[in-house]
């Protein structure tokens, strides 16, 4: 931990001086990531995400906002990553790109060996459906549908038959400990239970990555802890998880921290005590 603190200090100092881009060097010293040049042709086994100098610009007429300013990052199967950073640093923007809700302005994004940065809308929808599980801060359940129907929804878009859909949704609900709330509407569930339904929905299609943007942001501390315990469980079972959080208590659960600032990765390190 102490070493990390020192590194971070150093980064800030270097940044103040201006010209030097510290991201990559820190990445290399702290992470056992394979050489990025090799990943372009055939990704090394075990690698799910390869972000190569991702930029995301918003043209606001007079000025251009660089929400992401050259993010390079690789993640492997069964990593548990917390993305942190001040408000407006580009965390959500990055999550949207990783989740294939958005495309980078420039740069390449390889997801499980496929370049998804140039896919069309339909193909992206398919990738979201098969590869990504989203958990939102505001749960985002379909309010008119019950828990089971909510969890079934991704399978509906995969074209899976009625019976299998039902079985898999029930299984996912069991997994998050809501086997007894199958037919409850979101309005009949507590916040923690709603988020569990959302997690079940994210898991039901067996995604390569579970993406959670401040999953505990709308929950009280205790319920938040429950959800984090659930994440821990999923991680132990082999799930790759990326979450965005402000709260250090939540972040310490993750095994790797990535800090963003002004659209750039300022720090990227493994957490030993995780």
């Amino acid at each position: 931990m102490f070493e990390n603190e020192e590194k971070r200090f150093e980064v800030r100092r270097i940044k103040l001086w201006g010209s030097y881009k510290p991201t990559r060097s820190i990445d290399k010293t702290l992470m056992a990531t394979p050489d990025p040049s090799a990943s372009t042709d055939s990704p090394p086994a075990g690698q799910v995400i390869d972000l190569q100098s991702i930029h995301k610009n918003y043209d606001m007429g007079s000025e251009t906002i660089h929400a992401l300013n050259g993010v390079d990052c690789r993640m492997e199967v069964n990593e548990y990553v917390a993305i942190m950073g001040p408000s407006g640093s580009g965390k959500s923007t990055l999550m949207n790109i990783i989740g294939c809700l958005d495309r980078p302005s420039t740069g390449e994004y390889w997801l499980a060996g496929e370049n998804v940065s140039k896919l069309n809308d339909k193909a992206l929808a398919r990738v979201r459906n098969r590869m990504i599980g989203f958990v939102f801060q505001t749960f985002n359940l379909l309010s008119k549908s019950n828990a089971l129907q909510n969890v079934e929804t991704p399978l509906l878009y995969s074209g899976i038959g009625r019976r299998e859909r039902r079985n898999r949704a029930l299984e996912a609900l069991e997994r998050v400990g809501l086997g007894d709330r199958t037919f409850h509407k979101p309005s009949e569930l507590s916040g923690g239970q709603r988020q569990r339904v959302a997690v079940a929905r994210a898991l039901v299609n067996d995604p390569a990555i579970l993406l959670a943007d401040e999953p505990t942001g709308n929950l009280d501390t205790r319920t938040g802890e429950d959800i984090m315990a659930l994440f821990e469980e999923l991680y132990s079972a082999g799930q790759t998880i990326i979450l965005v959080t402000h709260e250090p208590e939540i972040a310490v659960r993750a095994k790797r921290h990535i800090h963003l600032r002004d659209g750039e990765v300022t720090e990227d390190y493994l957490v030993e005590n995780g």
Binding site: G99, L101, D121, R128, P154
Partner: peptide
Amino acid sequence: VRKALGAT
């Protein structure tokens, strides 16, 4: 939400 879940 539906689009995030994979609706085209």
